Amino acid sequence: MLYSLARRVDNIPVLNEKGEVIDKKYSFEAYYYKNRYLNPVIRIAVISNGMMFLCRRPEKFNYNPGKIDLPMETYLQYEEKPEDGVKRILRKYFPENEELDPRFSIKYRFKNEETNRLIYLYILYVEDDSQLCNPRFQDGKLWTIQQIESNLNKGYFGDCFEDEYEQLKDAVLFSEEFK
C-alpha cells in the first residue's frame, strides 16, 4: 500500500532565475511555498475553427480554482523534458488519439503573490471539435475572440490566460488566415 501511494506523488523541479534545475520538491508542497520557488509548468491551448477552447479550472487546483482557463496544464516532472510532459498530458486527456501534435509557442515567467512559474505554452490546433466533448474538460466550450475580450480583466479568467491572451489571439487569427 505504501508503495502505491508513493507512486502517486510527483517530484517537480525547482529552477533558478536562469531556468536551471537546482532542486526538487513534491508537487503537493507547491501550495505551501507559493511563489518562493520557480517551477516549470506546461500549458496547452486548444484552437478550433477560429475559436479558443476554454474550461473551468477544477476546484481542487491550488491556483485560480474555478476560473476559466486553458484546458490542459501540468507541472513538468523532475528530469522530464517539456516534450515528454506534453505527451503525458495528451495521454491523460486524449488517450485514444496519439496523432495530436501541439506546437510550442512561447516560454515565459509568470510570478505573483501566489505562484512563480516558468511556463511552456503550447498550441494544439484541432479541426474536429467533437473530440473536445470530453468529460475531463469541466464546463469546456469554444469561445470567440469577441466573447473573450468582453470578459477580460473582470476576474473571470485565470491569471496566466490573461497574460497569454494576446499571443493566443494572434494564433487564432493566424489559424483562420491560413485555413
Rank of each mutant, 00 (worst) to 15 (best):
M72L: 14
P58N: 14
A171I: 05
S48Y: 08
F94S: 10
Y31A: 12
K141A: 05
N134C: 07
K25S: 05
C133E: 11
L15V: 03
P135R: 06
N11Q: 12
I42C: 09
L90M: 15
I89Y: 00
A45M: 04
L54S: 05
E177V: 08
T144I: 00
E83C: 07
E176D: 07
L124S: 10
P82G: 07
Y156V: 15
S27V: 15
N39Y: 00
Y31T: 14
F178D: 08
E127A: 07
P71L: 07
M52L: 15
T115C: 03
Y78S: 04
K34Y: 02
E98D: 11
Y31L: 11
M51R: 14
Y75M: 11
L118V: 13
L5D: 05
R109F: 02
K169Y: 06
Q131N: 04
V86A: 00
E83T: 15
E98H: 09
S150F: 01
K154G: 04
E17G: 03
V21A: 08
F110H: 11
D10N: 14
M52N: 03
D23Y: 11
E73P: 00
E149N: 04
F61S: 15
F61T: 14
N64H: 10
N134W: 03
V21R: 04
F161A: 09
Y108A: 07
L168F: 03
S130F: 05
K111W: 00
P95W: 01
L168G: 04
M51I: 03
Q146M: 06
L100Q: 07
K92R: 13
C160D: 06
I119R: 02
P135K: 07
K141T: 10
N62C: 07
E162D: 03
K24Q: 13
L173D: 00
E98G: 10
D163N: 10
D159L: 08
E176C: 12
F110M: 04
L54I: 11
N62D: 09
D23M: 03
D170F: 10
K154R: 12
I44L: 06
K141P: 04
G140N: 02
L76D: 07
P40N: 04
Y3D: 14
M1F: 10
P58R: 12
D10M: 08
I119G: 04
I68H: 02
E80K: 09
N39C: 08
I145P: 01
I123C: 09
Y122I: 12
M52R: 04
F61K: 08
L54P: 01
I44K: 01
V9Y: 06
D139C: 05
N153G: 00
K34Q: 14
R117M: 11
A45K: 06
K25Q: 09
R36L: 13
Y120N: 11
K169E: 04
E96L: 13
V46N: 01
K25R: 15
L118K: 10
R109K: 13
